[in-house]
Design a protein around this nucleic acid. Structure first.
Lengths: 333, 333
DNA sequence: TTGTAAGCGTTATCAT
DNA sequence: ATGATAACGCTTACAA
C-alpha cells in the first residue's frame, strides 16, 4: 500500500496546546467549548489541513453519514437525472452518496445491499431491481433504512415512492380519443418492472372503458433501439395504429424516429405519440414529445427528508403525481 | 438516531466457537486459517448475516476502499457514460465509488475534495472543475491519489488523462476541406475548460494551415440550448458558414435542430457539422452526427488500474486517442 | 494454526 | 469548560 498519512486530531491538539477531546468538541456542533479554545483548535486544524476522520466518527457514533444509491443503467437520461437530484439533496442534508452500479439482475442488487451494510450506510436507496426479502429484512433489522423508488412491492419498513402510473395512462387514452384516434397501441419493453406494467395495464383498462382495444407489443430493454423495433412491428400491421403510448421517452424517441424516417409518417398528423419521463431529449425540437414528467426533485426531496428523520421511523408508501406536459406529438393540445 | 445494531465479528466468533481474530482471518484473503475453522466462521456469519465493517477495517488497514468521484452535471450524456464505466471498473477492482456532485465552481470542487479526505478515500477522480493547488497538495501529502480527467493542468503527482483534442480538431478541418467547405465556424461554450479550448485552438490553427479563417462563437454552458443560440448567431451572418465544428455533441444537437427547423438548412448538403463525445443521441437517426468518440472505457480502465497499483505511485500524463466516427453530417465520408 | 492483546482515530462518560 | 479514560469493531503482531 502507498504511504498514507492523514493528519489526526492528536496532532491538532498538540499544535493548539489542548487535549484531544477539545479538538473533538470543536468539531461537534453544540458541544461545550469556549470560543477561545474553539478558535485555537480551528486555526491549528486549518494550518495542518486536518479533516475529521469520518470512518472513526462513524464507528463511534454508529452513523456513517453514507447513503447508498443502488441503480442500474446510470447513463440513461431519466436515471441520471434522478441521480443528480438525489446526490444534490443528500449533500444538502449533510450526507454523502455511495454509488453502486448494478446490472439488471436482482442478484446484483443483493450484493450491492451487502456492500451498503459493510460500509454501514445509514440508508440505501434502490432505483432499479428488487432485492430478496431476506436481504432487505437484514438491512431493516440492522437499522438501515430503505427507500424503494418506483418498485411498488409492498413490504412494510421501507419508504416506497411511486407515481400514479395507472391514472396517467388513463389520461393518455382521453387525450388520444380527443385527438380522434381509435387504433391504439402500447409500446413496452420486456423489463416488466412494476411501473412499466402499471402503465400498460392502466392504458388497456382505460381504453376498454372507451370501448377501444389496444395492441400491445413488447421488446428488449427500455431504450432507443427497442423503440425502433417496436415501431417496425406496430407500424407494419395491416391495421396501422394511429396513436401509440410508449412506456418511456427513450422508447418514444426511437419510435418517432423510425415512424418518420422509415415509414415517412408525420407526427402528430398521421400518428400521435405519448411518452413517459420527460427526459431532456423529449423537449428537443426534433421530438417535441408530449409526455409525463417524472417529479425527480420531489422524489429526491421526499426520500432525503424521510431518511434524515431522527428516531425510529415508520415505513410508508407515497404516490406522487406526474404531470402531462403537452408538446407537439399529439393533435389538439 | 434510530436503533442501529449491525452484527459484529464478536457475535460470529461466539456462535462459531472461535476467537474473534479467527473471524477476522476468515475474511482476510491469504490469512492463515485452517479450512475447518474457516468454514465454521463462514457458516456462522451466513446465519447471522454478518458483513465485515469496512469503517473499522479501513481504520485499521489505513485503506478505505473508497474512491471519490467528483463531477458536475452528472445528468449529462457524456458525464453519465463516463460515470457508468468508472463505477463499473471500480467495482471490478473491489473498490466502491463515492459520488460528489459539484456545481461548476472550483470552490465546490475544493469542498468535495475535503469530503474525500474525511472519508479517507484511497483516491479521488476529478471529472469537472479544477481544485486549488493547496488542496490537491494536501491530498497528495496525505497519500490520497488523484486522477484528473480532461483537465490538463500540469501538476506532478496526479494521473492526468487527456485526449488528443488538437489533433482531432485538425482532422475535422481536413474533413471539411475535403467536403468542399470553405467558410468554417467553431461553436463553443463559455466554460473555457482545457479540452474545450484545445479543440478551439487546434481547429483555428489547422484551418490557418489550409489558408482558412474560422469564425468563432461562444455562448453559455455546454448544452443543447447553447447550441441553438450559437446557430442563431452563426447562421444569420451574411457570410453564412458552410461547416461548423461544435465543441461537444450536445451543442451540435442544438445546432443541427436550429439549422434544420429554423433555418431550413439541409445537412450535410448545405451545412456540414461535426461534434465531439459521441453521446448516444449522436447516433439517433434524427442526427446521425459525425463526431469523435470519447474512449470512456479506456479512460476508466487506465484510471482504475493506476489507482489500484500497490506501493508509492508516480504521477503521469496520458494522452488517449479519439476516433472520428463517420456518420451523415459531413459530405463524402 | 490459534488465541491474547495492542492499536487505529474518533466520540462519550465522568470527574475535575 | 476541560482533560483523562473507556468504548467502537476491526486487524495484526506476538506468543503459545
Amino acid at each position: 500500500m502507498s504511504q498514507r498519512d492523514f493528519v489526526s486530531a492528536e496532532e491538532v491538539a498538540q499544535r493548539a496546546g489542548v487535549s484531544r477531546s477539545a479538538v473533538s468538541r470543536a468539531f461537534t456542533p453544540g458541544a461545550s467549548v469556549s470560543e477561545a479554545t474553539r478558535q485555537k483548535v480551528l486555526q491549528a486544524a486549518e494550518e495542518l489541513g486536518y479533516q475529521v476522520n469520518h470512518l472513526a466518527r462513524g464507528l463511534m457514533r454508529n452513523e456513517s453519514g453514507i447513503v447508498c444509491l443502488i441503480v442500474s443503467d446510470v447513463a440513461t437520461p431519466y436515471r441520471s437525472a434522478l441521480l443528480r437530484e438525489l446526490t444534490l439533496q443528500l449533500q444538502l442534508a449533510g450526507k454523502v452518496a455511495m454509488l453502486i452500479n448494478t446490472d439488471r439482475s436482482d442478484g446484483s442488487v443483493n450484493t450491492a445491499l451487502q456492500q451498503a451494510i459493510r460500509y454501514r450506510a445509514d440508508a440505501s436507496v434502490i432505483l432499479s431491481g428488487l432485492p430478496d426479502k431476506s436481504i432487505t429484512q437484514l438491512c431493516l433489522r440492522s437499522g438501515q433504512r430503505l427507500v424503494l423508488i418506483n418498485r411498488d412491492e409492498d413490504q412494510s419498513g421501507p419508504l416506497h415512492i411511486n407515481l400514479d402510473d395507472r391514472e396517467a395512462a388513463a389520461r393518455v387514452v382521453t387525450a388520444f380519443v380527443r385527438a380522434g384516434c381509435s387504433r391504439l397501441a402500447f409500446a413496452n419493453s420486456e423489463a416488466g418492472t412494476p411501473s412499466l406494467m402499471a402503465r400498460e395495464e392502466g392504458f388497456i383498462a382505460a381504453a376498454r372503458d372507451h370501448g377501444l382495444e389496444v395492441v400491445v407489443e413488447r421488446h428488449g430493454w427500455t431504450g432507443y433501439e427497442a423503440g425502433r423495433v417496436l415501431a417496425q412491428r406496430l407500424l407494419t400491421r395491416k391495421e396501422r395504429p394511429d396513436a401509440v403510448f410508449c412506456a418511456t421517452d427513450l422508447l418514444a424517441c426511437g419510435f418517432m424516429d423510425a415512424a418518420r424516417h422509415q415509414f415517412s409518417l408525420s407526427i402528430p398528423q398521421q400518428l400521435c405519440v405519448v411518452g413517459f419521463d420527460d427526459i431532456e431529449q423529449a423537449s428537443w425540437s426534433s421530438y417535441r414529445l408530449t409526455t409525463f414528467s417524472q417529479p425527480v426533485a420531489a422524489i429526491a426531496r421526499e426520500a432525503v427528508t424521510w431518511l434524515s428523520e431522527n428516531g425510529v421511523v415508520q415505513g410508508k408508501s407515497l404516490r406522487l403525481h406526474s404531470d402531462l406536459v403537452w408538446r407537439d406529438s399529439v393533435r389538439g393540445g
